[in-house]
């Protein structure tokens, strides 16, 4: 009898419990701070220019060779980033490039919604990398 009452309270408690499941289209998981996602090129908030000068250190660091960087010299001897391409199909998300960057010009966004029908779409150009991924926690 005691066991029956005990079981009743367990069932009764479970009726009003929030479900563990996260129902995707309506709810989103907030992933923790510092989680490693796709590279993101930082932008200087004052001048709205890309901080990266294209020194190419991340290209040397990367063991998979997924980053291609090119710089170009503008007038007055100033060096500007010309091309920055990330091949997502090669990237292993180790985060070494962010750690070694001297300019502190790249960081890892929270963007994880990655799946493509075509492999060519996995190559991200500069314009796509600059974009902040929706809200900073574009994730579900």
């Amino acid at each position: 009898m005691l066991r029956l009452i005990k079981n009743f309270f367990i069932v009764f408690g479970n009726i009003f419990r929030k479900p563990h499941t996260i129902i995707y289209p309506r709810e989103r998981i907030i992933i923790p701070d510092g989680s490693r996602g796709v590279l993101h090129l930082k932008v200087d908030p004052d001048s709205l220019e890309i901080i990266c000068k294209g020194c190419g250190l991340c290209k040397i660091i990367c063991s998979q060779g997924c980053i291609t960087v090119q710089k170009r010299a503008e007038d007055k001897g100033r060096e500007v980033l010309d091309e920055f391409c990330l091949d997502l199909s090669k990237c292993i998300f180790c985060g070494n490039c962010v750690e070694f960057c001297k300019m502190n010009a790249i960081d890892m966004s929270y963007k994880y919604q990655l799946a493509e029908f075509d492999k060519k779409n996995l190559k991200l150009e500069k314009t796509e990398l600059v974009k902040p991924s929706g809200t900073i926690r574009d994730f579900w």
């Binding site: 199909s89 990237c91 180790c94 994880y112 990655l114 493509e116 029908f117 075509d118 996995l122």
Partner: peptide, 9 residues
């Protein structure tokens, strides 16, 4: 048909 990048995703 579908490519999912990540190591692991």
């Amino acid at each position: 048909n579908m490519h999912i990048p990540g190591c692991p995703p």
